[in-house]
Nucleic acid binder design. Structure first.
Lengths: 343, 343
DNA sequence: GTTATTCCCCAAAACGTTTCGGATTTAGCG
DNA sequence: CGCTAAATCCGAAACGTTTTGGGGAATAAC
């Protein structure tokens, strides 16, 4: 290392100001047992020598990094279409910045989860707490969170509360119920559902909402009319073919994500059936594309940004030992567009 | 702290294995001067006691954090529509994970830039290097990067190379030129441009490409036909009104971003003019919406994921003192859709 | 038998902070 | 003046690693 950039440390400051490092530390950290004049002097030198406290050294002794780990499983190329993960991240980031925390980004894939446990990630990097999103119910990480509650974390879209774990989610049951009720109000009686997959908490809940809406309106729930599209566009497309083939009587579809509606719409286009004239669709999420595609999709909006924002707030509340509810449930909203029509 | 979770340190390991901490460290870090049997033993104990080296302590002495700072200025709610920043982030993340680096996310807004300098951010948090995207030419951060070259960083979409700074971008001149040439090939002669803003490097370059295409085809460049839309949807919408008003002869528009085309399309719809029948559009970026909106937008695709991926690779190359070119320029590609028609 | 070499190991210093437990000086008060 | 209290300051330990500079024992070379 021929070119060692020398950076001023607390010792340099102490020497310059003619005091001990203790005093410098206490002066800069606002302790009361230091004379205001010396504090001024030290601050002046700090300014002059462009002193920046070394966060690593500080963390080592305080055992706090003021950093939260964000582990997202959807950080990949496909995530760009439904920017759900990104919006959550934005919300987390904004609140974290406001509260002067930094964000360490972890992405997880199945490979990583096998090689390195979630706790290891967090312990090794010494983040103070973590926010996890996009986990499947059968993910190894989730088990860890639930077993080892010594580490504060917030789950997104997975209901689980413990001493040290909180969660934020939306009311998926009521959201789905609203969606399906809307279809029923339009006169539809034969309503299929394209769900995500069995290991998603939200899928279970949205299915429940679908059921409730049907039963509340005296329509029998038929499990055969529920297909998994795995939250993917192609999955939605495939599911739609199935629905058309297996249940020609169906006139409306409730989908657990907008992305899958896009796939379904493609199927409809391929076989030349008009939407919403011959089939109505209600999606979920209100992704950006939903209002630009044709037809624009009627959907259940959930505020992912707010979810991230609240998750950060909750986690930091927990870190700072504030007494708050560990459970945050946000509302959803029906956005009516042109993919639904009355029968 | 009533409930202090005890975590095993290197000392515990040393005690358990009956050796010194030096030996434990050297054993686990693969040094050759430790007997294979003791290494085995130490590793067994490490496993057994679930030992995880404390990265903070390690960083303090090695002066390396194996962490790269990613500062994005587009991390906000609006960023969800054009997920440009997100795609870059995905690329960075993927490569960083592969090379065993972590990512510390910084978002910058004008407020932050005033209160805390870029160098401060990086010095304080001791990231090894940084990747910056979304900077304006008049941003304070940019000046810092160019002045203080002691800190390795990679700029995205801003051409500047130094000892310690690299950049990755796309060939914006040729991209824009391709776009406009495409319009000319379709028979258009009166072509307006909706540009970003004057403090964006890509805007300057795309303007240059626009000029070149015109001049290469014997069409005079008219600066009055270039409007700024500030890379915003509303900006594109407003610019389009201006174009229609000021230059009724125009039959085609080249826009420096797809998002602004969306705005322009809205304007066209509002005043009841058909696209592409009465006006052709070529955008830039190929955002997800571009292929779903109506009409789908002909555009210049740039691979933002790849840009992030390459940026991470470049930065880490620099960190590890490999001799590589500090300048990476990726190609773009014309994607023909239905927003363009021959005259 | 002596010396050189190799192999394995260790004590201590260092990284840059914070914090604990005093120490010194000054002020207040009878 | 003598005592207590308050106001300032400081030395040293601690945080958990890596690294430096050996050192001792066993083995090989002569």
């Amino acid at each position: 290392m021929e070119r060692c950039v020398t950076v001023t440390t607390i010792k340099d400051l102490a020497k310059a100001a003619g005091v001990s490092v203790t005093t410098v530390s206490r002066a800069l950290n606002g302790y009361s047992d230091v004379n205001e004049d010396t504090r001024k002097k030290i601050k002046r030198y700090a300014e002059e020598l462009n002193y920046r406290p070394n966060a690593v050294a500080r963390s080592l002794v305080t055992r706090k990094t003021r950093t939260i780990g964000v582990v997202l499983s959807e950080i990949n190329r496909e995530g760009a279409k439904d920017s759900l993960a990104f919006e959550i991240l934005c919300g987390i980031n904004d609140r974290a910045v406001e509260l002067d925390y930094d964000i360490l980004l972890f992405s997880t894939n199945s490979k990583k989860q096998l090689s390195k446990s979630y706790a290891d990630l967090c312990k090794e990097r010494n983040v103070d707490g973590a926010i996890l999103s996009g986990l499947r119910l059968d993910d190894a990480y989730l088990q860890e969170v639930l077993n080892d509650t010594s580490f504060p974390c917030v789950l997104i879209d997975i209901p689980a509360t413990h001493q040290n774990v909180g969660h934020v989610t939306t009311d998926n049951v009521s959201g789905a119920q609203t969606a399906v009720s809307h279809l029923i109000r339009l006169g539809h009686r034969h309503i299929a559902m394209i769900n995500g997959h069995d290991e998603a908490s939200v899928s279970k809940e949205r299915l429940e909402g679908y059921k409730r809406a049907l039963e509340l309106n005296g329509i029998a729930f038929n499990p055969k009319r529920v297909y998994n599209g795995y939250f993917k566009e192609e999955g939605g497309s495939a599911a739609m073919y199935q629905i058309l083939h297996d249940h020609p009587e169906v006139t409306a579809v409730f989908s657990a994500s907008d992305l899958m509606v896009l796939g379904a719409l493609r199927t409809m286009e391929r076989i030349g059936r008009k939407v919403p004239d011959t089939m109505s669709f209600v999606g979920y999420d209100d992704i950006a594309i939903a209002s630009y595609c044709s037809p624009p999709i009627t959907t259940i909006r959930q505020d992912r940004y707010e979810m991230g924002y609240q998750a950060a707030q909750l986690l930091i509340d927990m870190l700072q030992k504030r007494e708050v509810s560990h459970k945050i449930i946000l509302n959803t909203e029906l956005v009516t567009r042109q993919s639904t029509a009355s029968i």
